[in-house]
Each structure stands twice: as C-alpha cells, then as structure tokens.
Computed example of a mutant assay.
Amino acid sequence: MDVVTREIRETDYSDLVMLWNNDLNSRTVNLENVSARIERMKSNENYKVVVALLDNKVIGCISMVQIMALEYEMGYLQINGLVVQEAYQQKGIGTKLINYAEDFASKNGLSYMILNCGFQRTKAHEFYESRGFDRLSYCFTKEVR
C-alpha cells in the first residue's frame, strides 16, 4: 500500500469532511466551514493540516499547531485532530501521520507533542500509548458565550 502524506490542498476538503464526519462521528464540519477554517490555518505558519492519501483519496488526516507556553522552552506541538478511515486503521496510516508530526516538532525545536482524546476512544488511547504518549491529565472544556 503506497500511502503518501502531504499538506492539505483545497481539492482534499470534501474528502476530509466525509472522513471527519464518518470516522469521528462528528456532524459539526461541512465543506463551507472546513474550507474557511483551513484557509485561516494556512495563513498562520504555526498550523499544519496534513493528509494521508491512497490513490489520491484522503484516508487520513492530522491537524496540529505549534504553541508557546511558559513551561516549555521552545513550546510544544498540539495535535488538534487525527483521523484514519476505519477500513485503513491498523495499517500504519496513523503511525505515518504521527511520525510526520514528530518530525515537524523536531525540526522546529519543540519539546513535546500533546493531544486530547475522548474517554470513549479506548482503541485510540492504546494507539497513542503504543507510540510513546503518556496519560498525564484531563482536558476540561467550557463553552464561552
């Protein structure tokens, strides 16, 4: 299986929406809002959205941002989202995307990679731990109105 990773292009957006909604059971993204969000992200060099392609079809995606923080000398890489189409899970696609993120972090002198993962996603927890991530904290969210 010849999977290619590269930064996202506008022609990938519709595949990404289907992937995100189907494989993460999300209904909050559509072509219009994803297009606007990714274009805003592309205008800031701290953000990266990378896709995994098989036969020019998006089968995986990772979204990340370089963040400065008081406790880290050079900051860290926050992985905002990682998804692989269910039919291609456990075939090395997620690992390839994590490796891309780790290489990006290393090249930019970042100390850590951090991500959040829902309690219910136990298979994802196992995946992250097998890639060297540690469980360190809870993530708390609050809607601001």
Rank of each mutant, 00 (worst) to 15 (best):
N116M: 06
C139L: 12
T95P: 10
E71F: 08
V3M: 13
N46P: 03
F140H: 11
L24P: 00
Y88T: 01
I98T: 08
L136K: 15
A87Q: 10
G92N: 09
K48I: 02
S106E: 15
D55S: 09
G81D: 03
A69Y: 08
T95K: 15
V65W: 03
Y47F: 08
E73C: 04
N46G: 09
L115K: 08
E32R: 13
T5K: 04
F133D: 07
L77T: 02
V34Q: 03
M41W: 00
Q66G: 01
Y138M: 15
G81K: 00
R9M: 14
R37K: 12
H125M: 05
I62Q: 00
F119I: 10
C139N: 14
Y76S: 01
N22W: 01
W20A: 04
C61G: 01
N99Y: 09
I8T: 13
M68K: 12
V29A: 06
V84Y: 03
R40V: 00
N30C: 09
A105V: 10
W20D: 03
I93P: 04
S35E: 04
G75Y: 01
R37I: 02
I67E: 11
G92D: 08
E7N: 11
E45H: 02
G92L: 09
S35Y: 01
E7L: 07
A52L: 07
D134V: 12
Q78N: 13
R145S: 13
Q120W: 05
V29L: 05
E129K: 15
A36M: 11
T122K: 14
C117D: 07
L24V: 03
L53C: 11
M64S: 14
E143M: 05
R40N: 06
D12Q: 06
C139P: 00
L70D: 06
K107Y: 08
Q78C: 05
V3P: 06
V83T: 02
F119N: 11
L77N: 03
E143V: 07
N108E: 00
I98L: 10
V29S: 05
K91W: 00
G132D: 11
E45W: 01
E126N: 13
T5N: 08
V51L: 01
D134P: 08
N56M: 11
R37P: 00
D15C: 10
L54I: 09
T28Y: 08
H125L: 07
G118V: 04
C61K: 07
G81T: 02
S130C: 09
L16A: 13
V144Y: 10
M41C: 05
Y88P: 00
Q78E: 12
L31E: 14
R6S: 13
S63P: 00
D12N: 10
A69H: 11
V84H: 01
Y138K: 15
Q66S: 11
I114P: 06
D134M: 14
M64E: 07
L110G: 03
E32I: 09
V4T: 13
G132H: 12
Q89K: 13
Q89I: 07
E10D: 15
L82C: 05
N21V: 06
M113Q: 12
E7G: 05
E73R: 08
V51E: 03
F127K: 07
M68T: 09
V58H: 05
Q120L: 09
E86H: 11
M18L: 14
S14G: 02
E32Y: 10
G132N: 13
E126K: 14
V17G: 06
N30V: 02
Y100E: 12
E129F: 08
C139R: 13
K91G: 01
N80K: 06
K91C: 03
